[in-house]
Amino acid sequence: MFSAPDSYPIDLPTFHSEINLPYTLTPGRAAGIFLAEVKNRRIVASRFASGQVVAPAQDFSSTNGEEPEAFVEAPQTGVLTAFTRVDGHVIGFIRLDGCDNDFAHRILAELDDIAIGQRVEAEWDDSVEQSVLAIKGFRIAPDAPVGTVKPLETMEEPLGVIPYAMKLDYEHAYGPYYGRMFDEIRENGRFMGVRSPGSDIALLPPREIDDVTHGRTGTWKACADTGTIRGCSIINMEVYGQTRKVPYVYAEIVLDGASTRMIHVIEIDSLEEAKERIKPGTRVRAVWTQGERQGRVSDIERFEVIEG
């Protein structure tokens, strides 16, 4: 038999999570010049000591890592050497005239109308800058004259930075243990863990296998919504993606009845006051959000110190 998780989950939809990050990428000299030069409608290529010309320009040879001896201007015409179609876009390899490599780019034609060996020429898109997509693609041009590689006497400064964004979406499965835990949070407003093997103390979040012994965990147990701080820090800086106003306390809290930590926040009036009042060992209680619970950790709005 093959392995499979033994317990069965409460039927829950997936948990949506998003990672959405801005970047500032440095293309390096070759790609930096190429991307700067598209506004002049020039295709910059690299020429290596062997005489090989590679377009678009590369800082390092794809064959052996060698660095080019010069940047040159490649012609805007060439021959189609391979093609496919993905999501309706035809993508092909183009061998520009006088070049020794294939340039992967879009082909502006229907798949049925193209064939290996056809002449093509670049079509520019004036609305695009600082991107390889300033070349909209290559169109079929049977009569395009054969171009030649030319020296590049003057060239733009390489772009140092181009903005980029990456957005990743996830639909995470809850699984049997998180499924029940979040269901309990939503339905009953309580934190349920599972007992460590041979112990009455709960692991929270719950899991099938104990981390330390790798033995099977025990029965379910409700933990309190009060607990003790194990570690904490006072957040006083703003970072990308933050949802709370600084200063506040980031706390690793062990709920009563559990042996593992949960992460949450405690609101404070001032940093100096919080240093004294909130520390490892400080007792805290959950403050639940008003209104309907969603079955998430954020159903607890924050923790607050139990005075006295």
Partner: peptide, 17 residues
């Protein structure tokens, strides 16, 4: 799709068996 299992469920299952 293992809709009813997390990564850790799949992992601990093979590591156990």
């Amino acid at each position: 799709a293992w809709n009813n299992a997390q990564h850790i469920d799949l992992i601990s299952s093979v590591v156990t068996s």
